[in-house]
Amino acid sequence: MIVPGLAVALSGTGLLLVWSATRTQPDQSLLVRQAVAVGIGLALMWLVSRLDLRVLRAYVPLGYAIAVGSLVGVLTPLGVRVNGQHSWIVLAPGVQFQPAEFAKLALVLALAMPLGELREGERRPGFGAVLTALALAAIPMALIVLQPDPGTLIVFCAILAGVILVSGARLRWLAVLAFGAAATVVAAWQAGLVRPHHVERLMVLADPASYASGIGYNAAQARIAIGSGGLAGKGLFNGEQTAGHFVPEQHTDFIFTVAGEELGFAGGAAIVVLLGVLLWRGVGIAARSGSPYGRVVAGGVVCWLAAQSFVNVGMTLGLLPIIGVPLPLVSYGGSSTVACLVAVGLLEAVRRGRASAWARDLR
């Protein structure tokens, strides 16, 4: 139960940081919404952790179809544009969800079908299995490009590369994936889907000072907020940068700046350590899984959460360009929170499946 415990600790820390980041805003419902999302996510995490992977496997095609349908729905009048991205579907006033977050779950489970179900006599996935996996990933990834949402696309690429590697497929497929990713970027550029501000965000890394009052404002303010926290921080709810909302979207993609200012280097490092331990335990679960399917599922979840964590922390520290990727289990966002907690439930389901098989072998 170590992995679920780490998820609870990170979610609780996230609630405190969201509370601090939104305490001076007129809309005080954000904390309540996040608390509800955490509650729903924890319930689903527990439920999924109790499921037999073979039972869950039977519903994967339906889940994948719903995920792709939702991504298509985003591009119709049902979808709404938030911060320049057409990524949301509104269910009711004040109630919306981001299908891409749940598509990550569906993608992990769907890719595990061809890559984690080896035919008799096979030691690794064959040509047909890997080609099927690439086709399954290409559909949602193309829809993400159309939104456009480069941050989510990077996470999808990390999931695909990770499951191919974990499945034991030949490494040349990673070269094929890299070529495909480069071709996609070129095609998106030619189609006008790569916006000028996407390129400018890359330029900020080369010369932050020249863009500090423009496209690089978020990055500059994030570094100021984190740097002002020092070693021990200014104390929870005492951050001046946080209270003044100098960092835009500080309760979502830039939640790590709140931790850096108010909890200091020690608090920020503690969050990174918690995430690192969770990922390390996930790697262990994947390595010890008795079935190829469970190994690929666990490996896909680890690659997903690792990619998001690395990109989010990296962009707030000014090491990576600013893209919209939430910090798993910590950032505000109902869709992301619920999806990540369900992913943790998948890790626990893989672990419990191995433990059950070990107990049967003893008998």
Rank of each mutant, 00 (worst) to 15 (best):
P4V: 10
L6M: 12
A9V: 13
A9M: 14
L10P: 10
T13L: 15
T13P: 00
R23T: 13
D27L: 09
A37G: 10
L42T: 08
V48D: 10
L51H: 03
V55R: 14
V55T: 14
L56N: 04
V60G: 02
Y64S: 00
Y64A: 04
I66M: 13
A67G: 06
S70P: 00
V72D: 01
L78M: 14
Q85N: 15
H86M: 12
I89E: 11
G94M: 11
G94Y: 12
Q98G: 07
Q98N: 13
Q98R: 12
F102D: 08
F102V: 08
F102W: 14
K104D: 10
A110V: 04
A110W: 05
A112T: 03
G121D: 08
R123E: 15
G126E: 05
G126H: 08
F127L: 15
F127W: 13
G128K: 11
T132V: 09
A135M: 14
A138M: 08
I139P: 00
A142G: 15
A142F: 07
L143D: 06
Q147A: 06
P150G: 06
P150H: 05
T152I: 06
L153I: 01
L153Y: 10
C157V: 12
A158Q: 06
I159M: 08
A161C: 12
I164A: 02
L165T: 13
S167T: 04
W173T: 05
A175Q: 01
F179H: 00
A183W: 03
T184Q: 12
V186F: 13
A187S: 12
Q190C: 07
V194C: 00
V194Y: 02
P196E: 07
V199Q: 04
R201E: 10
R201M: 06
L202F: 15
L202P: 00
A206M: 13
D207C: 04
P208W: 05
Y211D: 02
I215F: 01
G216V: 10
N218Y: 06
A219F: 00
Q221T: 07
A225W: 09
S228G: 02
G229C: 01
L231C: 00
A232Q: 10
G233K: 09
G233A: 03
L236R: 07
H245L: 13
F246Y: 14
V247K: 10
Q250N: 13
T252S: 15
L263V: 01
G267S: 09
G267N: 11
G268Y: 06
G268H: 08
A269R: 02
V272W: 09
L274T: 04
L275Q: 14
G276S: 06
G282M: 09
G282V: 06
G282L: 04
V283T: 07
G284M: 13
Y293I: 03
G294T: 02
G299K: 05
V302F: 02
C303V: 09
N312C: 03
N312Q: 11
L317E: 05
G318W: 06
L320K: 02
G324Y: 10
V325K: 08
L327R: 10
L329A: 09
L329T: 09
V330I: 15
S335K: 03
S335T: 01
S336M: 09
A339I: 08
L347H: 03
E348V: 12
A349E: 01
V350E: 05
V350S: 02
V350P: 01
V350T: 03
S356C: 08
A357H: 07
R360Q: 15
L362I: 12
